[in-house]
Structures are given as C-alpha cells and as structure tokens.
Amino acid sequence: MIKQIAFAAAAVLITASPFAIAAETSSTVGMRHPITGADLNALTDARVGMIKAALQLTPEQEKYWPAVEEAIRARAKNRQARLERVAELRDSSSPTEVLREQNAVEHMQRRAEALSQRAADLKKEADAWEPLYKTLSQDQKKRMAFVTVVAMRGMRDTIERRIESGDDDD
C-alpha cells in the first residue's frame, strides 16, 4: 500500500515538475512559455487523480467523490480565471504605470473581492469533503495527509525557486 502511495506521489511530481519549471522559466524569461489553461487543467487532473488513488475509496465512499471532485475543479477553474486577470493586467501596462494610475481604495476593494471569492471556493470544497472525510478510515486519513504534505512541499519549493531567481535578477 505504501508503494502505491509513493508511486502515485512520484507520478504526480514527475508530471507536475515540467509545469513548475515552465512557470519559473516563464516568469524569469519574459513569458516566452507561459502556462496555458490546458497546462493548469492537466495539473488539476493530476491532483484529482493523485488524491483519489491515494484514498483508495470503498464502493460506499465512492458516492461522495463526485461532489469533492467537482469542488476541486471549480476552485481550480476560479484560480485559473484570477491568474488570467493578473496576466492581462501585467501584459497591458508596465508595473510603473500600474502603480502610478492605481487608486488605493479600488485596489483594496478588488483584493477584498478576490479574497472573498477564494474563501467561498475553499468553503465549498470543505463542505464537499466533509461527508466523505467522515467515512475515511484512519489509514485513508494518513494517506490524505501524506498527499497534502507532498503537494504543499512541491508548492513551497516552487515558490522558493521563484524567489531565489527573482533575487538573482536584482
């Protein structure tokens, strides 16, 4: 069973690593190879597959899975829309122009709206997970925690690489 979890985690990390490298490269080399919607969809598919494989749901638990998957995908779709809006703003003008023309109050309102949307998405996902989580065995909960740690570690490493590459540019 541990081998299956390790295999699933390795498969996701191998699948996701080119996207992480592409994201890092695109942010440091003038966006020559930006991450596309298809790339983000592939990452979401990999995430959903990894979680489901790690949990090894029973037939009784399977009935709760569609709501969880739908919530994960909806949250990812909204995240993608936010990233696209940020990219549009970044592409439309230089950072200096944006800062000069920015209304601080409007910026705070847009930020509050974005945070509210993220909170609502997370709440929907938590609500979808709740019935399934209640049925998970201790072993399944441990595997879920393992998958979460692996995913968070991957995100942390990507962020650290981006920060380090940004420091090199200064």
Score class of each variant (00 low, 15 high):
Gln4Arg: 11
Ala8Val: 09
Ala9Cys: 14
Ala10Gln: 12
Ala10Glu: 11
Ala11Gly: 03
Ala11Ser: 12
Val12Leu: 15
Val12Tyr: 13
Leu13Met: 14
Thr15Asp: 15
Ala16Gln: 08
Ser17Leu: 14
Pro18His: 06
Phe19Val: 06
Phe19Tyr: 12
Ala20Pro: 08
Ala20Gln: 10
Ala22Gln: 14
Ala22Trp: 09
Thr25Cys: 02
Ser26Trp: 07
Ser27Ala: 07
Val29Ile: 15
Gly30Lys: 08
Met31Ser: 09
Arg32Asp: 10
Gly37Asp: 11
Ala38Lys: 11
Ala38Gln: 14
Ala42Glu: 15
Ala42Asn: 14
Leu43Glu: 05
Leu43Ile: 07
Leu43Phe: 02
Thr44Leu: 01
Asp45Asn: 12
Leu55Met: 10
Gln56Arg: 11
Gln56Asp: 12
Gln56Gly: 12
Thr58Pro: 02
Thr58Tyr: 00
Gln61Ile: 02
Gln61Glu: 10
Lys63Thr: 11
Tyr64Phe: 08
Trp65Asp: 02
Pro66Gly: 08
Pro66His: 10
Ala67Tyr: 14
Val68Cys: 14
Val68Asn: 13
Glu69Gly: 00
Glu70Lys: 12
Glu70Gln: 11
Ala71Glu: 02
Arg73Ile: 09
Arg73Val: 09
Arg75Asn: 12
Lys77Arg: 12
Lys77Pro: 03
Asn78Pro: 03
Arg79Asp: 13
Leu83Lys: 04
Val86Ala: 08
Ala87Leu: 08
Ser92Phe: 04
Ser92Arg: 15
Pro95Glu: 07
Glu97Ile: 05
Leu99Arg: 01
Arg100Cys: 09
Ala104Ile: 11
Ala104Thr: 06
Val105Asp: 07
Glu106Ala: 04
His107Asn: 11
His107Met: 14
Met108Arg: 15
Gln109Ser: 11
Ala112Cys: 04
Glu113Tyr: 10
Ala114Asp: 10
Leu115Asn: 08
Leu115Ser: 13
Leu115Ile: 10
Ser116Leu: 13
Gln117Thr: 13
Gln117Lys: 15
Ala120Pro: 00
Ala120Trp: 04
Asp121Phe: 02
Asp121Ser: 06
Leu122Met: 12
Lys123Leu: 08
Lys123Ser: 12
Lys123Gln: 14
Lys123Met: 04
Ala126Ser: 06
Asp127Leu: 12
Asp127Cys: 05
Ala128Glu: 02
Tyr133Thr: 04
Tyr133Lys: 06
Tyr133Asp: 02
Lys134Cys: 01
Ser137Cys: 01
Ser137Trp: 05
Gln138Thr: 11
Gln138Tyr: 05
Asp139His: 10
Gln140Pro: 03
Lys141Trp: 01
Lys141Ala: 01
Lys142Tyr: 03
Lys142Met: 08
Arg143His: 12
Arg143Lys: 05
Ala145Asn: 07
Phe146His: 00
Thr148Pro: 07
Ala151Leu: 14
Asp157Thr: 06
Ile159Gly: 05
Glu160Gln: 07
Arg161Asp: 03
Arg162Ser: 08
Ile163Gly: 00
Ile163Phe: 04
Glu164Gln: 05
Ser165Gly: 05
Asp167Arg: 09
Asp169Ala: 12
Asp169Ile: 02
Asp169Gly: 03
Asp169Phe: 07
